[in-house]
């Protein structure tokens, strides 16, 4: 179970950036005096067995929120709880409980798929036997045995993404965070990822799924959280969000809820 309450993250501009911004008309309401409020007020929760869709336009603050959840960034204020444990106070606990996958998180190109996955298993303190057993299970689930010995730099995009999923779940985390995992994937590879997420529905895992593909949200997510300009604009059941417009379409609901002006 994940609970995020009144989360905020502010970045201070460095001297060069501050000088560049000085005197210019402020186009983004998140810009402050020498600072940028990337996340101003975000709150949501995700229960065990639930898939939560994290929506929002580019630059809304989704990735910053997820980076705070994964302990890579420290929140300026607010609270993130995983099973009641405060992430900022117990980062090691959080790191053990979270499996994180984004389009940006990569693999070590000169290690084989198996070596990559095993390495992260070791980093999470698993024994060799545990690693072997879990690799066997995950590789079967994701149909990865045929390229398990291949070096990561020889993999196709789809293979790479499956290997990244295996890397993210090797330590059997209770919270899975997928940050735009199907971006750049072909239909078949994307389906593999989506099927994998689907398989966790109803399990003991909490899954946060950030995406721009609304059809994926419609298919997978029990609830959605819409973030725009660093704030939660909607948090609730997917059907309720879609029903907020006359057409009942998630697409229309999304467009109606977000600031349509692109911020510079």
């Amino acid at each position: 179970m994940i609970e995020i309450k009144d989360l905020a993250k502010t970045f201070a501009y460095d001297k060069k950036e501050a000088k560049k911004k000085k005197g210019k008309t402020v186009t983004d309401p998140r810009e402050g005096e020498g600072v940028f409020h990337a996340v101003k007020d975000v709150s949501f929760s995700c229960n065990a067995g639930e898939v939560l869709g994290l929506l929002g336009p580019n630059g809304a603050g989704k990735t910053t929120t997820l980076r705070m959840l994964s302990t890579a960034l420290q929140p300026t204020s607010g609270q993130i709880l995983i099973n009641g444990h405060d992430v900022t106070k117990e980062p090691r606990y959080a790191q053990k409980q979270i499996g994180f996958l984004s389009g940006k998180t990569g693999l070590y190109h000169r290690l084989s798929v198996r070596e990559n996955v095993a390495y992260f298993g070791r980093m999470h303190g698993l024994s060799r036997q545990q690693i072997n057993e879990r690799i066997e299970k995950i590789f079967t689930m994701l149909d990865m045995h045929s390229f398990a010995g291949k070096r990561a730099d020889d993999l196709s995009t789809g293979m790479m993404q499956r290997a990244s999923i295996a890397r993210a779940v090797i330590h059997e985390p209770e919270v899975l965070v997928f940050d735009e995992p199907t971006t750049g994937l072909d239909v078949i590879s994307a389906k593999t990822v989506l099927d994998f997420i689907q398989s966790y529905k109803g399990s003991e895992m909490s899954v946060i799924f950030s995406t721009h593909h609304l059809h994926e949200v419609e298919k997978l997510c029990d609830r959605v959280c819409l973030i725009d300009l660093g704030e939660t604009k909607f948090f609730g059941p997917t059907e309720e969000f879609a029903a907020s417009t006359e057409s009942g379409s998630l697409y229309d609901a999304f467009l109606a809820s977000v600031n349509n002006k692109e911020v510079a």
Partner: peptide, 13 residues
């Protein structure tokens, strides 16, 4: 650049 640094930062190390 490869995105592995962020992956590494998410481990308990």
């Amino acid at each position: 650049e490869r995105g592995t640094l962020e992956t590494l930062l998410l481990t308990p190390m």
